[in-house]
Design a protein around this nucleic acid. Structure first.
Lengths: 343, 343
DNA sequence: AAATAGCACTCTTCACTGATGAGTGCTAAT
DNA sequence: ATTAGCACTCATCAGTGAAGAGTGCTATTT
């Protein structure tokens, strides 16, 4: 995208975007002229604004209103204009103290993190847990719950726990289950959970397995226990979206909430960004969320010592305080990464 | 509450409540007269309505509008007027099939149930998991996650799993942890989790424990693992609240969502109702939720084979379809109870 | 040639108006 | 006891006109 803008145009665009972010109201030429000691008359600003509109960076809701940045403008703004704020000492303190106070293992930490993100940004905080399957296998345990019902508990080396109810064809005695567990625990030590799964599938095919009943059963049940499953996701602060004036309309609000209710959508959205490092920003249509609604997403990934990655970030209106939210997301991702690596 | 109402008054009140539930608009005298072949003139109805208003059962938003039922009227309606609908075959089918398809143990079932409730009622579904602590202890497992960090996994006989991260003073070797686990598993077989906790606390005080280091350590760690914790709660269909015309105002909507965001409030509300059997109904202020907002709650409790109880129900506007929601909640609670008892 | 002042023009917002109609409460007639 | 009739109240709606914000164009200044 070629953007041949004079320094002056850029300054004016920046002023408009920031004004609009601050006030949520169309920005007029005189407001821009007054601001930022530009020493330009409203008339001049008007000319420039007309240009910017031609380039698709601004629109006006109607003739006699000011102008509003388009998504393209936000994109340009975050790419080349925004002056990122420093994370304040107080914000750092909050992030850290929240991390520390979280109990209940990995889930607790992530939930608390998403709450922190929401509080600091005043938008919606979101965290996708690192995919379990890339974690190193630590232990598996089978417990008989009822007739032909087994509870499988799978623990990763990071302390993430997953439990799954398995219905089996035969009924197993508790002793069988212990032996099955021991077998798998011995055999799979040190592998990642994905590898465990692969190995199990491999062995199930192998010939000698066919004749060892205990073995083949262990594998069959184990396979079910390590089967891939949807990622865990933590969303906090949905109500804050309602603070935004652009969503005060009931219709749009509903649209947004319905979109968020299937968390599946969010997961999908976020996992697309897993590969890239650093803070990523999706503006409006780029999120491919909820067709029309002007929603933006700022995320960064975090890593664990076992090299699994998760995503965290903030969802808000396109008209979002990018200059402060971006650093917050960045810093939080770093802190979480550090915490999860120090094991 | 003395309610000396003539048959005719009751019929008219019923008509008004049902009309208002259906339309969400103030009901006028002629609308009532037309309805239900009452063969009464609007004028007569007006007289009756004036009476009902004096008794605090109706109000009018302004002189020239129809009348609206008060909370007192809803109360009276559900207590003595409402004609409960049968649960339709189709609804039953939905409830049952949802229950069956749920995977992932207890949590899965309850989550699915809350979704079903929301779908069938078109309001918000809510389920509070049976308190873990009244369940029978089945097994405990300690796993070393890092330096002085232990993951405790606690399984109840119903297959509910709770895991907790414990930070200890000393560092334990894996073998120690296994032995500690075995000790507790032996000792506490057959007790409920509450009893386990009591027993641990007891033993910690006893003299001979003081001299057995392994023992005292097992107890100390075990105690942390079985410590009481907040109940699990499942809420689904929040977006449906937005369908209700009375919440189309952005302010009220926000109020409600904020109230719901601290799930703690909901849990507190629901656990108050645990003791009573059958369907319970809380109307408006009776919910003590969110000061002003006209919200009602219909719940019933369900029981498991181990006699622990949970709550499930529906939250909606006071202007709720009581006649159909009450039977749905009732039926769902019975079904869930049955499913959880057949182990 | 770039910047600006001036001005006509557009379009929203707001307050006010009067007409409409739904619904009531009272009184008098059935 | 019921109801018809009627005056009255009040929200809602469409229309009006003034105010104000902001624009685009043009002529002027620098």
């Amino acid at each position: 995208m070629e953007m041949e803008l004079s320094v002056r145009s850029r300054k004016i665009l920046e002023a408009i975007v920031e004004d609009y972010i601050a006030t949520a109201e169309p920005v007029g030429s005189s407001a821009v002229a007054r601001r930022h000691a530009l020493t330009l008359s409203p008339a001049t600003v008007r000319n420039v604004m007309a240009n910017l509109e031609e380039q698709g960076l601004l629109t006006s809701p109607h003739t006699s209103a000011g102008r509003i940045p388009t998504e393209k403008a936000y994109r340009f703004y975050v790419d080349s204009l925004v002056a990122l704020r420093q994370v304040t000492r107080d914000e750092k303190r909050q992030i850290i103290s929240h991390c520390r106070q979280a109990g209940a293992g990995l889930s607790g930490l992530l939930k608390e993190t998403s709450r922190t993100l929401s509080q600091l940004s005043n938008y919606m905080g979101i965290v996708v847990a690192p995919s379990f399957t890339a974690d190193v296998f630590r232990q598996i345990e089978f417990i008989r719950i009822g007739q032909r019902k087994i509870l499988a508990i799978l623990v990763s080396s990071k302390g993430a726990v997953q439990n799954r109810l398995i219905e089996t064809v035969d009924d197993y005695a508790p002793e069988d289950l212990v032996r099955m567990g021991n077998y798998l625990n011995d055999k799979m030590q040190g592998l990642t959970i994905t590898q465990v799964r692969e190995q199990i599938l491999d062995e199930m095919k192998s010939e000698k397995t066919q004749y060892d009943q205990l073995l083949s059963r262990s594998l069959a049940v184990g396979e079910q226990a390590v089967r891939e499953e949807g990622d865990e996701i933590f969303v906090e602060g949905q109500a804050r979206i309602l603070d935004q004036p652009e969503f005060s309309d009931a219709g749009r609000m509903k649209e947004i909430f319905q979109a968020f209710e299937q968390k599946g959508l969010l997961v999908q959205l976020l996992s697309r960004c897993m590969s890239a490092e650093g803070v990523q920003i999706y503006i409006g249509a780029e999120t491919s969320l909820s067709q029309s609604a002007g929603i933006s997403l700022i995320t960064s990934r975090f890593v664990t010592s076992s090299n699994t990655v998760g995503m965290l970030g903030v969802i808000g209106p396109t008209r979002m305080g990018y200059s402060s939210v971006i650093p917050i997301v960045d810093y939080t991702a770093r802190m979480v990464s550090r915490l999860l690596s120090e094991t």
